[in-house]
């Protein structure tokens, strides 16, 4: 391949590895806002066609009915040095999509579930999904103006969360607040996957 300059030769190109975090929650819970607050690019939108494998197959006809659903997702990006790139996907939380989600969740570092205190139940499907799939997740309680203030224990009770699952208050519009949510998630994922001893002290090096 003469036209390939040696410095860019396939074997020599060093690409960062991409990592993804899902940001889930009900309609209007603040998913896109949270992604936008920490992303280095203006959130972009993409459409993914998800194929329903197995569910909804009509046994009687003997014909496998492969259903597809198109979901739109907003996403953002954070560059982590030369080695990694973090992508955040705001994923639609409608209940009927959840069984199609494995493709998106596969390989994810973890998930943020945004709980909107005005409509707590909207995040139940997301919680069920990540619990079942054992994807590490944290619950970010988004405090909208005028919404009743809950304390975190109350939310935890309301959502019947496992005691290990972190619950944090957030204002998705603020970068510092959204950043804190992500840090809490990464620490939690690290504890879940590597054990408490390794993850015990993440600030000292």
């Amino acid at each position: 391949m003469d036209s390939v300059r040696s410095s860019r030769d396939a074997g020599r190109v060093r690409l960062p590895k991409a990592i993804k975090i899902l940001v889930a929650g009900g309609f209007g819970a603040g998913k896109t806002t949270l992604v936008g607050a920490v992303s280095e690019i203006q959130p972009l939108r993409t459409e993914e066609t998800l194929t329903d494998r197995g569910v909804g197959v009509d046994d009687l006809s003997g014909v496998e009915s492969k259903q597809t659903t198109t979901v739109a997702m907003d996403f953002g990006r954070i560059t982590i040095g030369d080695a990694y790139r973090l992508y955040l996907f705001g994923t639609p939380g409608q209940e009927r999509f959840w069984f199609l989600w494995d493709e998106l969740a596969l390989g994810a570092l973890g998930a943020v579930v945004i709980a909107d205190t005005r409509r707590l139940a909207d995040c139940f499907p997301s919680l069920d999904y990540f619990e079942r799939r054992q994807t590490p997740f944290v619950v970010a309680v988004n405090c909208f103006d005028g919404a009743r203030r809950y304390d975190l224990d109350e939310v935890r009770l309301g959502l019947t969360l496992h005691p290990d699952v972190p619950v944090v208050l957030c204002d998705a519009r603020r970068r510092e607040s959204s950043k804190k949510v992500l840090i809490t998630l990464v620490e939690h994922a690290m504890r879940m996957r590597l054990g408490a001893t390794v993850a015990g002290d993440t600030t000292a090096r």
């Binding site: 954070i78 982590i80 990694y84 570092l109 950043k179 620490e187």
Partner: peptide, 26 residues
């Protein structure tokens, strides 16, 4: 193409340290 981290790579401690450092520096 560069494939992303697989689920098994998620047990690499360096990845978490790097991501945490990157997020804190935001």
């Amino acid at each position: 193409l560069q494939e992303p981290h697989s689920e098994t790579d998620m047990h690499d401690e360096r990845l978490y340290r790097a991501v945490l450092d990157g997020l804190r520096a935001l």
